[in-house]
Amino acid sequence: MSELGNYFRKMRGGAKSPPRVGLGEMAWSFLGALVGISLLAYINYHLLRGTGLVLILGSFGASALLIYGAIKTPFAQPRNLVGGHILSALIGVTAYKLIPGHLWLASGLAVAASIAAMHATRTAHPPGSATALIAVMGDEKITGLGYFYAVMPVGAGVLILLAVALIINNISKTRRYPESWF
Protein backbone atom coordinates (compact mmCIF):
# COMPACT_ATOMS: atom_id res chain seq x y z
CA MET A 1 0.00 0.00 0.00
CA SER A 2 2.77 2.40 0.91
CA GLU A 3 4.50 1.32 -2.29
CA LEU A 4 1.47 2.48 -4.24
CA GLY A 5 1.43 5.74 -2.30
CA ASN A 6 5.07 6.22 -3.11
CA TYR A 7 4.32 5.56 -6.77
CA PHE A 8 1.79 8.38 -6.89
CA ARG A 9 3.86 10.67 -4.68
CA LYS A 10 6.56 10.65 -7.33
CA MET A 11 4.12 12.34 -9.71
CA ARG A 12 3.94 15.44 -7.55
CA GLY A 13 7.35 16.61 -8.71
CA GLY A 14 8.32 19.25 -6.20
CA ALA A 15 11.73 20.15 -7.61
CA LYS A 16 12.25 23.79 -8.45
CA SER A 17 12.34 24.60 -12.16
CA PRO A 18 15.37 26.47 -13.53
CA PRO A 19 15.48 30.28 -13.62
CA ARG A 20 14.42 32.40 -16.60
CA VAL A 21 17.27 33.36 -18.91
CA GLY A 22 18.30 36.98 -19.41
CA LEU A 23 17.16 39.27 -22.21
CA GLY A 24 20.50 38.90 -23.98
CA GLU A 25 20.07 35.16 -24.22
CA MET A 26 16.59 35.62 -25.63
CA ALA A 27 17.91 38.06 -28.24
CA TRP A 28 20.79 35.83 -29.34
CA SER A 29 18.47 32.80 -29.50
CA PHE A 30 16.09 34.80 -31.66
CA LEU A 31 18.84 35.97 -34.00
CA GLY A 32 20.39 32.53 -34.40
CA ALA A 33 17.09 30.86 -35.19
CA LEU A 34 16.07 33.66 -37.54
CA VAL A 35 19.25 33.39 -39.58
CA GLY A 36 19.52 29.59 -39.52
CA ILE A 37 15.96 28.71 -40.41
CA SER A 38 15.47 31.61 -42.84
CA LEU A 39 18.59 30.55 -44.72
CA LEU A 40 17.38 26.96 -45.06
CA ALA A 41 13.92 28.09 -46.06
CA TYR A 42 15.25 30.55 -48.65
CA ILE A 43 17.32 27.85 -50.29
CA ASN A 44 14.41 25.43 -50.09
CA TYR A 45 11.73 27.73 -51.49
CA HIS A 46 13.76 29.73 -54.00
CA LEU A 47 16.98 28.08 -55.09
CA LEU A 48 15.64 24.54 -55.10
CA ARG A 49 12.25 25.37 -56.63
CA GLY A 50 11.35 22.93 -59.36
CA THR A 51 14.29 20.59 -58.61
CA GLY A 52 12.32 18.18 -56.43
CA LEU A 53 14.94 18.60 -53.72
CA VAL A 54 14.01 19.52 -50.15
CA LEU A 55 16.11 21.29 -47.53
CA ILE A 56 13.68 22.25 -44.77
CA LEU A 57 12.12 19.90 -42.26
CA GLY A 58 9.77 20.43 -39.31
CA SER A 59 12.22 18.88 -36.89
CA PHE A 60 14.77 21.62 -37.68
CA GLY A 61 12.53 24.07 -35.83
CA ALA A 62 13.04 22.03 -32.68
CA SER A 63 16.78 21.81 -33.30
CA ALA A 64 16.86 25.59 -33.56
CA LEU A 65 15.74 25.92 -29.95
CA LEU A 66 18.59 23.72 -28.79
CA ILE A 67 21.48 24.97 -30.92
CA TYR A 68 20.57 28.67 -30.74
CA GLY A 69 18.64 28.85 -27.45
CA ALA A 70 20.14 26.21 -25.13
CA ILE A 71 23.69 25.99 -26.41
CA LYS A 72 25.25 24.49 -23.28
CA THR A 73 23.06 21.41 -23.10
CA PRO A 74 24.57 18.12 -24.29
CA PHE A 75 21.54 17.76 -26.63
CA ALA A 76 22.77 20.82 -28.55
CA GLN A 77 26.37 19.76 -29.19
CA PRO A 78 27.50 18.99 -32.77
CA ARG A 79 27.87 15.25 -32.12
CA ASN A 80 24.23 15.13 -31.03
CA LEU A 81 22.87 17.53 -33.65
CA VAL A 82 24.47 15.87 -36.65
CA GLY A 83 24.65 12.30 -35.36
CA GLY A 84 21.14 12.31 -33.90
CA HIS A 85 19.48 13.62 -37.04
CA ILE A 86 21.31 11.47 -39.57
CA LEU A 87 21.08 8.27 -37.51
CA SER A 88 17.37 8.85 -36.90
CA ALA A 89 16.78 9.60 -40.57
CA LEU A 90 18.31 6.26 -41.53
CA ILE A 91 16.20 4.48 -38.91
CA GLY A 92 13.01 6.25 -40.05
CA VAL A 93 13.56 5.35 -43.70
CA THR A 94 14.33 1.76 -42.73
CA ALA A 95 11.12 1.50 -40.67
CA TYR A 96 9.10 2.87 -43.59
CA LYS A 97 10.66 0.42 -46.04
CA LEU A 98 10.27 -2.60 -43.72
CA ILE A 99 6.59 -2.12 -42.85
CA PRO A 100 5.05 0.15 -45.49
CA GLY A 101 1.62 -1.38 -45.05
CA HIS A 102 1.31 -0.60 -41.35
CA LEU A 103 2.20 3.04 -40.93
CA TRP A 104 1.08 3.05 -37.28
CA LEU A 105 3.66 0.43 -36.36
CA ALA A 106 6.35 1.89 -38.61
CA SER A 107 5.82 5.27 -36.90
CA GLY A 108 6.15 3.86 -33.40
CA LEU A 109 9.15 1.75 -34.27
CA ALA A 110 10.89 4.60 -36.07
CA VAL A 111 10.67 6.90 -33.04
CA ALA A 112 11.35 4.21 -30.44
CA ALA A 113 14.35 2.83 -32.30
CA SER A 114 15.75 6.30 -32.93
CA ILE A 115 15.62 7.11 -29.21
CA ALA A 116 17.34 3.86 -28.25
CA ALA A 117 19.94 4.22 -31.00
CA MET A 118 20.72 7.82 -30.09
CA HIS A 119 21.15 6.84 -26.45
CA ALA A 120 23.41 3.95 -27.43
CA THR A 121 25.61 6.20 -29.56
CA ARG A 122 25.55 9.18 -27.16
CA THR A 123 23.95 11.31 -29.85
CA ALA A 124 20.62 12.03 -28.14
CA HIS A 125 19.06 15.02 -29.89
CA PRO A 126 15.27 15.19 -29.32
CA PRO A 127 14.43 16.60 -32.77
CA GLY A 128 16.12 13.53 -34.24
CA SER A 129 13.11 11.46 -33.25
CA ALA A 130 10.90 13.88 -35.19
CA THR A 131 13.20 13.36 -38.17
CA ALA A 132 12.66 9.60 -37.84
CA LEU A 133 8.88 10.06 -37.62
CA ILE A 134 8.75 12.38 -40.64
CA ALA A 135 10.49 9.70 -42.71
CA VAL A 136 7.38 7.55 -42.13
CA MET A 137 4.52 10.06 -42.05
CA GLY A 138 5.89 12.54 -44.61
CA ASP A 139 4.28 13.12 -48.01
CA GLU A 140 5.52 11.43 -51.17
CA LYS A 141 8.05 14.18 -51.73
CA ILE A 142 9.78 12.93 -48.55
CA THR A 143 9.13 9.19 -48.62
CA GLY A 144 10.09 9.10 -52.30
CA LEU A 145 13.63 10.13 -51.39
CA GLY A 146 14.46 6.78 -49.83
CA TYR A 147 17.78 6.79 -47.98
CA PHE A 148 18.76 10.02 -49.77
CA TYR A 149 16.51 11.61 -47.13
CA ALA A 150 19.42 11.18 -44.68
CA VAL A 151 21.71 13.15 -47.02
CA MET A 152 19.26 15.86 -48.01
CA PRO A 153 17.32 17.46 -46.46
CA VAL A 154 18.65 15.97 -43.18
CA GLY A 155 22.46 15.91 -43.57
CA ALA A 156 22.77 19.10 -45.61
CA GLY A 157 20.23 20.90 -43.45
CA VAL A 158 21.90 20.19 -40.12
CA LEU A 159 25.33 21.15 -41.47
CA ILE A 160 23.99 24.55 -42.53
CA LEU A 161 22.27 24.99 -39.14
CA LEU A 162 25.53 24.02 -37.43
CA ALA A 163 27.56 26.52 -39.46
CA VAL A 164 25.15 29.30 -38.50
CA ALA A 165 25.33 28.21 -34.85
CA LEU A 166 29.14 28.40 -34.88
CA ILE A 167 29.02 31.91 -36.36
CA ILE A 168 26.20 33.43 -34.29
CA ASN A 169 26.76 31.72 -30.93
CA ASN A 170 30.35 32.89 -30.59
CA ILE A 171 29.78 36.60 -31.25
CA SER A 172 28.73 37.39 -27.68
CA LYS A 173 31.53 37.44 -25.10
CA THR A 174 29.46 35.43 -22.65
CA ARG A 175 28.44 32.69 -25.08
CA ARG A 176 30.49 29.81 -26.41
CA TYR A 177 29.60 27.05 -28.85
CA PRO A 178 30.15 24.19 -28.91
CA GLU A 179 30.96 22.92 -25.44
CA SER A 180 32.42 19.85 -27.13
CA TRP A 181 32.50 18.52 -30.69
CA PHE A 182 32.43 14.81 -29.94
Partner: peptide, 22 residues
Protein backbone atom coordinates in the same frame (compact mmCIF):
# COMPACT_ATOMS: atom_id res chain seq x y z
CA UNK B 1 20.43 24.78 -0.43
CA UNK B 2 18.17 24.75 -3.46
CA UNK B 3 18.12 28.55 -3.29
CA UNK B 4 21.93 28.66 -3.49
CA UNK B 5 21.85 26.54 -6.62
CA UNK B 6 19.00 28.52 -8.16
CA UNK B 7 20.90 31.76 -7.53
CA UNK B 8 24.11 30.32 -9.02
CA UNK B 9 22.26 29.09 -12.10
CA UNK B 10 20.71 32.54 -12.58
CA UNK B 11 24.21 34.07 -12.51
CA UNK B 12 25.38 31.93 -15.41
CA UNK B 13 24.24 33.42 -18.71
CA UNK B 14 22.50 30.97 -21.00
CA UNK B 15 20.01 28.20 -20.40
CA UNK B 16 21.22 25.35 -18.19
CA UNK B 17 19.30 22.22 -19.01
CA UNK B 18 19.18 20.82 -15.47
CA UNK B 19 16.91 21.28 -12.46
CA UNK B 20 18.41 22.62 -9.22
CA UNK B 21 17.53 19.29 -7.58
CA UNK B 22 19.50 17.30 -10.14
Amino acid sequence: SDDDIFAAMAEIPGYLDITPDD
